[in-house]
Write a protein that binds this DNA or RNA. Structure first.
Lengths: 369, 369
DNA sequence: GTGAAAGCGCTAACAG
DNA sequence: CTGTTAGCGCTTTCAC
């Protein structure tokens, strides 16, 4: 009471434990107990307190709780902005009304709108919920990203970060405060727990299908960005499958994981020659490859096989449907949260590196034999 | 210092302002200033403090900040669990490896995997970020939902809640502490800010197309759940368009917004007769209607027109592509966050009811004239 | 510019 | 079963 000389109920502030305690004629400790360990309080008292809680519209401050309890009950998830989300700078359109659009099929499906992270996020949310944690998201864009991550790090019990979202330096820094797990990057020995997908095995299976079963010798790889750990692993799988079939290497063009870039690169390539198969680093670039092949008047799969990687939904609806490697995206998110929680529960245990399996989805663009 | 007699740097705890202050030979106030208002501190001092921050791996506690600063910098978003996410109870599969699947088109596209909320979430995230807030998500499933919402309410500055996620009672309760905006429910006069899409106008435009332009008189409405405010509004639009064309009403069957339910209901209907058009309350039920029509050996649009509502991605890839009303889902999320932030900045202003426009997407299942 | 001190609202011993 | 009392780590006047 000393700290709160005037808790007269007339003051219009958001009510605190003190207000509830006063009104119910109990101590703040009892109010706290009613909320956290109801069985430790006599029924009558409990009822009284609860009714005051209702009357006052009391909602306990999560921050005060976290501070006093030394745990927030929140897990953070950071990933690198929603790619291609131009809406980022669109002014928000808020007029009502209806616009009529003739939307009959007039071209290839639009590029996948970043389903990838949507699904990771969903998986993470589900798992966090089950483990009794709330989830805080930061899909950083721009330089302020580092600031935000730092900020988030201060409000959660643990953090899951998608590879390449922020500098390793920052990661190391925040890891001194809370457990950090890195998603979609198999790199070891950086002191973090890791959760990733079997990129290498996936690509290996895919290329084995193309080279081994279909017997194609003339392959071109539409590569991802040089600094992508994902692509690095996929190339490892590629090389290994090639080697297994007596091929030393194949030519590459730079697709950069992007539809437009891949489109341009493949168009350029096709001006000089037509390989039998275009193995693309991801689905987006496969869409670009498909565009370029079509423009050239070539048929898929008859003239050229085309394959992707990721298993975006949109890959099922291309013309023809795209053979690709499906990643368990939602499970990635779940596994990440799981790894964070596990680490929280067993701080001392050795670092883990979770590997999730993938699916080789054989479709018309490069069909089964 | 009185409160922290032993701040000797040898103790291995997560460092606090006190540790930084000690090491840098300044007061905690100065440390705080360096972080919040750098210009208020002499350059030399600032550098010194910053370097200690780095050395110690200091990350400020967001909770303590929020508590002292009386604002969290976080906005909450709650929606009703990820529908149909069975993965909810799946054990997480964590073995690596590759599974090969012949995934050539073998049926209709799978039902939309809840893109709806994924996009709302994404929109909210983007807007929160731009406004300098972090986002906390709760996609509640089960009864503990109410508990969690309450919990979240205690850790955020404002809350956006999708209609029918939690009881109005709880909403009213937490609204006494922080601003609450309700999504996708046009109901007024409940004391909350609202953000929704123009359901009524959308359906009206759609039905005007069917009845007015295509001249169909024999329509059946595949309705949503009786307690859905969304469907209620859509029916309003339906009635109004019918009236405008001299039709009193049309028969209804219960689709419940679900593919399976709608499938069953329409199959039942078709056993007795075949209406010229099936106007469905949402895309999911339109998928079900399509299934039933196909099974009956009828052709769309030649024998029956079918329409949906929502504009899910999957509706573009059905056979034939589905005429539907597209909702700006990401913008819904953005507008919600915007409403929360606006309310935070101007607590006194009158309640708002934001209405987002929709698009009538005319596709092959009920094409333009 | 910088420091001292007073909380922010809650939990968790520790007494009784 | 209930009350007292320390803090949790930070921001923020108010002096100097």
């Amino acid at each position: 009471m000393a700290r709160h000389p005037d808790r007269s109920e007339t003051t219009a502030r958001t009510p605190t434990v003190y207000d509830v305690a006063d009104r119910a004629g109990v101590s703040i400790a009892t109010v706290s107990r009613v909320l956290r360990t109801p069985d430790a309080v006599r029924e009558a008292t409990r009822e009284r307190v609860l009714s005051v809680v209702r009357d006052l519209g009391y909602v306990p401050s999560g921050n005060a709780r976290a501070l006093a309890g030394r745990r927030t009950g929140v897990i953070g998830l950071c990933f690198p902005g929603h790619d291609g989300l131009e809406g980022d700078r669109d002014p928000l359109r808020v007029e009502g009304g209806v616009r009529v659009v003739d939307d009959r099929r007039n071209g290839a499906p639009a590029g996948g709108s970043n389903l990838y992270f949507d699904e990771v996020l969903r998986g993470a949310e589900v798992e966090a919920w089950r483990r009794g944690f709330a989830l805080m998201v930061a899909a950083g864009r721009g330089p302020s990203r580092e600031v935000i991550v730092n900020d988030i790090a201060g409000r959660v019990d643990g953090l899951a970060v998608v590879a390449r979202t922020v500098s390793n330096e920052l990661l190391t820094h925040v890891a001194r405060r809370i457990p950090v797990v890195v998603l979609a990057d198999a790199t070891q020995a950086d002191g973090f727990d890791h959760v990733s997908v079997d990129n290498s095995a996936g690509m290996q299976a895919l290329v084995t299908h193309v080279v081994g079963e279909l017997g194609v010798r003339d392959v071109v790889y539409v590569a991802g960005p040089p600094d992508s750990p994902d692509d690095a692993e996929r190339q490892l799988g590629l090389m290994s499958a090639l080697a297994a079939h007596g091929l030393a290497d194949v030519p590459r063009v730079a697709g950069e994981f992007r539809r437009d870039t891949a489109h341009a690169a493949v168009a350029e390539l096709l001006r000089s020659r037509t390989p039998r198969a275009l193995v693309c680093a991801n689905d987006q670039s496969a869409l670009g490859a498909l565009d370029a092949v079509r423009e050239r008047g070539l048929r898929v799969p008859d003239d050229v096989y085309v394959t992707g990687f990721d298993g975006l939904d949109v890959a099922r609806f291309t013309e023809p449907p795209l053979t690709t490697v499906g990643q368990p995206m939602a499970e990635l998110g779940r596994a990440a949260v799981q790894a964070v929680v596990d680490r929280l529960e067993a701080p001392g245990k050795p670092l883990t590196a979770t590997r999730l399996g993938v699916e080789l989805l054989l479709r018309e663009s490069c069909p089964p034999v």
